[in-house]
Design a protein around this nucleic acid. Structure first.
Lengths: 207, 207, 207, 207
DNA sequence: CATGAATGAGCCTTCATTCAT
DNA sequence: AATGAATGAAGGCTCATTCAT
């Protein structure tokens, strides 16, 4: 029992080794420029070992997406409980989002891949559904806050879902611009742009 | 002279044939799943001919990006002159942007690739500079309008460049979400979301 | 026209180069120990070229089988017309068979592969049907002779098809034993064994 | 003693488990399509255990061949004693052969592999010698009967070894044709063909 | 003895690029 | 200028074998 528990954990660890290496490399060089051999070397494993933990290269990528969104979902769920009103809650979400992006940038990068890097057809139906569910989960946290804000009269009435979608896509947009190196190229920094952006959004949403 | 003129035009035409085919295929299947042979067949040319007009596959892709942004830049330049105040001008820009996205979706898609699909290292330094310049050009149109709005007292004072960057990245974010099929998946449509988004932004920007 | 004719012939030639190399190597080392690289080297072609003429390794093998049986079928058809009675005709067939085996041993070897080397499941349904048809064709020549012999009263009455099958499988048996090197190992030679075998068979068949 | 005896038997049993699994799989899928893992799973053992009983995959195959021929040899030895004259004895051999083929088809199939499936080079020198010896043993039984038949004047005089070889290869030929599925494909059955074949052979051999 | 996770050499296949015509 | 057959480097994946437990 204890034995199998240790085994399970070691297996989990090795899986993570692989994902860590893959995440780093996919982002550094892109999906198709990353060879299985590279991932193996970076994870200090043999090529064959990768195939003990994942069906194929695409499955590694898929796991990366799923895991990234799962973590973000969990963080959002926790953050959504902080704050006394809709503004504080949204600020909490934004902070969590930025912190996650800074600390686990690779994860976030992978998430954005889903939107732009791999064409939808490359994703297995099952993975696609998982991802859509995760994104819906994330949006749900936002919607909940927005709904409360509108009901409390803090926020001007409007389409809850649409508002959440707008805010979420604005966040993604900034992240993309930052990832592509244009934020830096234009002498800006994501953090301050995000703060300003939030200010603008809040003013636009105020009742 | 007339001879060389006709030659030039024919050459131009063939180049466009190639780009048209490549644009369509890159978007349908992604960059690495599109083979030179596919592009050749779609363009009704031989493989070898592609190499008479482009150094290599990556150059085709690069040209696509450049051309797309150049067109968008031109459209923005024209649109920026319409409208009597900053709100009308920005609306004009937004409309142009949406129309371009709808009509030349392939072009726009290619443009977004620059942000997420190909890693910066894949772009030659020269192309990268061109693209940054184009984006700066596009942002300049926005900045000009924002500056006028602030100076006219229509728009609350603030950092012009930053504001432009926020708006631009919000637009990109929506486009990404749409491209990834999530807009449709969530039962929304880019057009109405864009209108709502603009409303929110304008309220947030109002003096 | 003449151009395309020359092209066709050259293409045919290259196909044959590949088949020649593959036939030799498959027999020397067996199917799975023969690498595409080996075939390419032996055919003085690049690996990629093999794939211009054949879908994959298995298709090369399949072609070998088909071609071998087609040639044998043709030879049998011609030989079946020689000779004045059933005994002479059967002798003609046997001679042709032996000569073909000696001169194109590789071909014959490949043919026997069908019976023992590759399991039926490895053969595509289409190829399998072709092969069965060829074998039926070959058996038909034998049956025709046997039928004539029986009708002429030279040969004792019996089941025509069964008799053909017995003779054909006896031939295959000898060839297998020879191929496996046991004929030589036992200090015998296929030719004389075949002659003796034919003698025994004829006596067993005589009316 | 008793201890080591039980050990020996258990060891023997496990060896047989492996051989049983391997025999079945080699015949179902062919040698190279059968993975060590498959054999292990089928034998309810771990992969590593296979290597405690056999040097490598090829050795398993080799043992299969040897064992199969050893059994056949033993059966032939016994059968050769039955019957009062050469015809009855040969019939006894044929019957034993057919029964063995029907009951232990896998074994027989493996034996035929030696002739066609694996190239001679794949067999270690030692195994090859063993196999040749076994085949000689089998042929010896036949030769003995033939010699007696000739000496008794029942059988027409001739080369004893050659006659045995002819009969043996005819048997193999029929088996191959059956194994390859062509007997069935042609609507025949090995048993009746064998009987007819024996009739023809006996008539051909009669003094 | 038994296990099965780990290894990594090896092979089929793809496809960007070249070059003789 | 145009062609497309030929090239061969490169990479995903398999599986016989090993070895630490």
């Amino acid at each position: 029992m204890a034995e199998s528990e240790r085994m399970r954990r070691r297996k989990e660890e090795k899986r993570d080794q692989i994902l860590d290496a893959a995440r780093k490399l996919f982002l550094e060089r892109g999906y198709s420029s990353t060879r299985m051999e590279d991932i193996a070397r970076d994870a200090d494993l043999a090529i064959g070992t990768l195939y003990l933990y994942f069906e194929n290269k695409n499955e590694i990528y898929a796991s990366l997406c799923e895991d990234g969104l799962a973590i973000l979902d969990k963080l959002f769920a926790r953050a959504a409980k902080e704050g006394n009103n809709c503004w504080e809650k949204m600020e909490a979400l934004a902070k969590v989002n930025l912190r996650f992006y800074r600390k686990h940038r690779n994860y976030y990068d992978i998430v954005t891949f889903v939107f732009a890097g791999l064409k939808p057809e490359d994703l297995s139906a099952a993975l696609r559904e998982k991802i859509v569910n995760r994104i819906n989960g994330i949006l749900n946290h936002l919607e909940e806050i927005i709904r409360e804000g509108m009901e409390a009269g803090d926020m001007r009435a409007g389409d809850v879902e649409e508002t959440a979608l707008i805010l979420w896509s604005a966040v993604l947009g900034m992240v993309f611009v930052d990832q592509a190196g244009f934020m830096e190229g234009l002498g800006r920094n994501l953090n301050s742009v995000a703060v300003a952006s939030m200010g603008m959004a809040f003013r636009g949403l105020k009742a």
